[in-house]
């Protein structure tokens, strides 16, 4: 008996239906239901009229932007050094930078919290950003490192040949050509930080509540409908930023990599 090739994808389709499509549909259904199961916009309206939720959301965005900026500022130079044949000759250093990703993020966060506790550091926004940057830095370094590593060395040589000093080579050639890596690094850091809750819980003792935290709290206290509405709103907003980024990246890729 021969199995058609297209039927190989059936298990994956089933998986997608059960674990991706169905939950999304359920979120949407719950978000537009009141406690008795009737259709309502109240949950969505409640978010936009509740100043607490709105300010939490604003704070989440702020923290996410700050974290992304920190990761970018730390990650780009690190990626540049790792990709440079003159500054780094060993693949081991690259692995060392990626190594933290092998350990569960929750465990790392707990350990960090414990360290702050031991050294008597007051938990707050500083510790939150520290923990986030620590968790997400590899996600920024790796895509940038990859783009820089694959970049043809002759581009920077050509620039130098045309009279560019090393600083000008970086500004006018290396940096613009590494933008695809930077964009995907930003995406990989920004999107998960908006919805994170564990890090803020452990590293600020819930002093700072992020958007992810209030979704979790609502779900935990059986306020499924409102929680679902919040989740839906977050999804939509992240979805919109992704769209922006995609267009951006497509635009760059056009003039981008060979």
């Amino acid at each position: 008996m021969t199995i058609k090739r297209s039927s190989w994808s059936i298990p994956y389709l089933i998986f997608l239906l059960i674990f991706v499509v169905l939950p999304l549909v359920l979120i949407a259904i719950y978000a537009f239901q009141d406690g008795e199961g009737g259709f309502t916009f109240a949950n969505i309206a409640r978010f936009f009229t509740d100043s607490d939720s709105l300010s939490t959301f604003a704070l989440s965005l702020e923290v996410a932007i700050e974290n992304t900026a920190i990761c970018l500022l730390l990650g780009y130079p690190a990626a540049y050094i790792l990709a440079s044949k003159d500054l780094n000759r060993s693949a081991v250093t690259v692995i060392l930078f990626i190594l933290p990703m092998w350990i569960n993020a929750l465990m790392r966060t707990l350990a960090t919290a414990e360290l702050f506790n031991v050294f008597g550091v007051t938990l707050g926004k500083g510790t939150l950003l520290f923990g986030m940057a620590y968790d997400y830095l590899p996600f920024m370094i790796y895509p940038i490192y990859n783009t820089l590593n694959k970049m043809d060395k002759s581009f920077s040589e050509a620039a130098e040949d045309l009279g560019a000093t090393p600083a000008q080579v970086f500004r006018k050639v290396t940096l613009p050509l590494s933008m695809p890596g930077v964009t995907s690094g930003i995406m990989m850091v920004f999107m998960p930080t908006v919805s994170t809750f564990a890090i803020s819980e452990f590293l600020t003792n819930n002093k700072i509540k992020l958007f992810g935290t209030i979704i979790q709290e609502n779900i935990n206290s059986s306020m499924w409908n409102y929680g679902a509405a919040l989740a839906l709103i977050m999804l939509v907003i992240i979805g919109i930023t992704t769209l922006f980024n995609d267009e951006d990246e497509a635009g760059k890729a056009e003039g981008g990599l060979i």
Partner: peptide, 11 residues
């Protein structure tokens, strides 16, 4: 220099 694979800046 004219490089072997041209090395024109793609951006």
């Amino acid at each position: 220099t004219v490089f072997q694979r041209y090395a024109l800046f793609p951006h």
